[in-house]
Amino acid sequence: MTSPASGAPSAPLIAPSVRRRMACWLYEGTLMFGVVFIAGYLFSALTQTRHALHNRHELQAFIFVVSGIYFAWFWSKGQTLAMKTWHIRVVDRMGRPVPQWRALLRYILSWVWFIPPLLLMAPFGLTGGEISVLMIGWVLVWALLSRFQREGQFWHDIWAGTRLIDARPAPSA
């Protein structure tokens, strides 16, 4: 959090626990179901797609862009709805609000949560169950790697120049 006058942090920039961040991450996934559903419906209505496999790659690209807009917009405001619920805020390294370009960079770099397991699908011809196990395993490994980072941040946040901080309200006296 920053004080309006100086732009300097007024509270310590403490990272939330990995458990809280992962709970927020799961809740975010639940909320994203609605965003993806509406984006997919809008895409199929605008393109008059009648079969699920027609325009599949275009739909994936559209959902990627819509998700990027969603996250960049909310992160530049400080929090998504899930982050508000779990009292987590995204800021830059100095504790200031994140500009939209940095929020977009964070979105692109956050795909490291999914890309490695997805890249293994085609060359090894993995089935749905194998992909699920690989995806869950990778997500757990990636989350636990934050324990090896000095400030406890996820690595994509370090690369993007952002950080997640605890935004719980101060207890009243």
Rank of each mutant, 00 (worst) to 15 (best):
L59D: 01
A72V: 06
R150V: 12
R163M: 14
I63C: 11
R102P: 02
W73F: 15
Q149H: 13
R150E: 14
G152R: 02
M94Y: 11
P169R: 12
S3H: 14
R102E: 09
D157W: 05
T49Q: 15
E130V: 03
L109S: 03
C24W: 00
G152T: 10
R106Q: 10
W113T: 07
K77Q: 15
T162N: 04
L59Q: 12
E151K: 13
I63R: 12
S10N: 11
V35E: 06
I88N: 07
I88W: 07
A167K: 01
V66Y: 07
P99K: 03
T2G: 07
P171V: 14
T80Y: 09
F114I: 13
L105E: 01
F74Y: 14
F62R: 05
F148T: 05
D166S: 10
G128F: 09
P116V: 04
T162I: 07
V65E: 03
L46R: 04
A170S: 13
L109C: 03
T127N: 12
M135C: 04
M32T: 10
Q153F: 05
T49I: 11
L109D: 00
G129K: 06
M1K: 09
R56H: 13
R96N: 12
I108A: 14
R147P: 00
I158V: 15
A103W: 02
L118N: 06
F74C: 12
L140E: 00
W111P: 00
T30N: 00
H54D: 15
T162K: 03
R163D: 02
R96C: 06
P97T: 05
R50L: 14
R163T: 03
R50V: 13
V90D: 02
L120G: 03
V98S: 05
S10G: 06
W155G: 02
A8I: 06
W86N: 08
G152D: 05
Q149C: 08
R147M: 13
I14K: 11
G161H: 05
P123F: 06
G68N: 06
S110E: 06
L164H: 12
L119S: 10
T47H: 12
A72S: 15
G128N: 10
